[in-house]
Design a protein around this nucleic acid. Structure first.
Lengths: 220, 220, 220, 220
DNA sequence: CATGAATGAGTGTTCATTCAT
DNA sequence: CATGAATGAACACTCATTCAT
């Protein structure tokens, strides 16, 4: 099906890397051409415009994620797992997603605010993802473990953004000239995922299942 | 001391509005000048560069917020209030902040990834804000109501981003041509703030104070 | 090796002509583009900056002269010629140089005072030329015909500037609106070169070889 | 007659200094105003245009020189002096002129080629000066000491240019970053003026008065 | 007399896009 | 398929000049 020349792929790869690093507007087609080892004209043989090239850097990645999530979620909830392990797995998956597609998400988050196209594609992606999750959630909800679901989506997206920020702090603290580190922000890298899971499940003041049991027992 | 002509202010206002709407790179100095009702040359009498004008759109606002937060937090924790009311107030304050300075934060969040300057200024701001909050938090922590503090900052920032997203969804759903609404995203506008407070305090599965008491009592 | 399109050459030619006529600063890239029959963007495909274009108008010409002088001087001193003929030839060569590269030297002499780059390139050129001449001079010096060599270089450069001025006076006196002519300046065009040679050899009061012989003989 | 405020003078002084250093085109009225300690508007209260200010930097200086030369030449030729001393005095006067009005002459020589106005004023100046000199010369000519007068003016101007170059070499060799020095150019600072006088009188090969006498005597 | 904010035409330079080869 | 020269509209920024105060 695919042309074996790989020209288009090379261009997209280079463009994605540059868009992520410098931003869409600040990246020139000349830079992309140079980076990909082709001439500027070649870009326009494969893409009608710079904008189209931008979308081509993003959409297939989102689709790939959609597909792989499908597969991922099909297998997991079947297993006998407690809720906390499930949440950790879910957060882990999100972190991995961001890590593996860091450039793509940098592009998305920076273009989102100014490109209706980008916004639409990203919202579709989010809604697709959330539908899957909420399916899972409602199953668990039935077990009465989950106490709150109203406005859940915004809360969930906040958690996801926390993961995104975590990843960026890691990258920044490795970069030169940055004065703030994760120590400064009181971020413990080792316990990040289970901690986030606990916040997700019990907030800053909630009582965990074990504690609830303890409370109950203790009173007996 | 200052000339009351207001030229500089007019330019900053226009620039902020345009930067927020279209992005820094996509806004031309010509547009700003036209929008402000001055000639392009006038911009450069007041600012050395477009970049300087950008920072002028952002820094004073952040500073203003820093100052007002100082004042805000000084008064609240003294009052006899339960934790939940306090958290709601805090989230309310954040939402109000984003609402009142929507343009400024749009600029910040879009430039953050590509401008070291912007990142530094915003990190300073965040750290300043978090220090104040965490001061408040640690007071409460002593009352043993708060169970989790490790990696708190990232969690807190996730909450803030949830508020930011909420605000954006509200704006988008009012905008033309947007196909998704808050209903579609299962967002209940009426209960948003208390819901977020509950998530913040007890997560999706945590037991609230009242429930805890109920549990405890019920067992007796 | 080179593309025969000649675009670069056309641009350089036009730029040289305009720089010479109006000065570097007073010539706009738009004028150059228009004059060369290209768009402004084309200039910047071939040159990184206006400054680079300026240097490209000058350096190859100087190099060409350096090369051709090499060749010129290799052949002449071998011939049996008296000093006066040699000096006339040399001055002739200088005049020809200025005539053939009039625009280039106008640019050099006008930019010299304000551009360190230009100064350095021109000094290298001068020193290169003077080394060749002084080699010739020292050969002749051995014949005891030459009486003075200290500070020779400044004197020689003064002579060269006299030739440069002569050329300019010729151009000016042909131009419209100029009130002074070469008659007014007591310049005889017909005898200019031999006269300059005599000044160079014997100054305003020196006795020429023939006269010296005459004096010597006459006393006998 | 003159306003005692000195504003105009301060502006002219500053402008002359800047025009000389950076060139007319590269100097902005804003710089001049700042340097003079006035506002830009003030410049235009005293001068109709930047061009007028330029001419004001030059013309009075030339006039002052014309006047002082008048006085200078009135007194000298009367004295009993040999031709060589007279020539040295003349060259000395030229060097002093250039030194004392270095900035002015830098401006003249750099604007000459592109400004008809400047050229006219400078030519008038030169012709005025040359008339005085040639008056002096023709007196001496009668004594039969001077052998060559045809095309004298160009030769004389060449000498003047040699002096101008000498002065510039001195300045450049003191400046930072200049790789060439007067040693490199074989310039002996100590004997410069008498050497130039000898070149002026006897060229590189001419016999000087003493030598002529020696020749004559020697034969006896 | 002095100011300095404002101007607007223009400055060198950039860049997405086109097209003949 | 690929090229890269050419475009031209736009870009951030400059500057001599004006004028209300």
């Amino acid at each position: 099906m695919e042309k074996p020349s790989g020209t288009k792929e090379k261009i997209v790869e280079t463009a994605r890397s540059l868009f992520a690093e410098k931003g869409y507007k600040s990246t020139t087609t000349a830079e992309i051409a140079r980076g990909a080892g082709f001439s500027e004209g070649t870009i326009y043989r494969h893409f009608n415009s710079k904008k189209e090239l931008l979308m081509e850097c993003v959409i297939p990645v989102l689709q790939k994620i959609v597909d792989s999530t499908e597969h991922y979620l099909e297998h997991y909830p079947n297993q006998e797992e407690d809720l906390r392990s499930l949440v950790i797995k879910m957060l882990e998956m999100r972190l991995q997603l961001f890590q593996e597609n860091y450039q793509t998400f940098r592009i998305i988050f920076s273009e989102l605010l100014f490109s209706e196209d980008m916004l639409k594609h990203y919202m579709e992606f989010i809604i697709n993802q959330e539908e899957k999750i909420s399916g899972m959630i409602s199953q668990i909800e039935a077990t009465e473990e989950i106490k709150r679901t109203r406005n859940y989506m915004l809360f969930g997206m906040g958690q996801v953004m926390a993961i995104w920020m975590y990843l960026n702090f890691m990258k920044w603290s490795k970069a030169d000239g940055m004065e703030f580190s994760h120590e400064m922000l009181n971020i413990s890298q080792e316990t990040f995922l289970p901690d986030m899971a606990d916040y997700f499940l019990y907030g800053i003041a909630g009582v965990s299942e074990e504690e609830k049991i303890k409370f109950t027992r203790g009173e007996g």
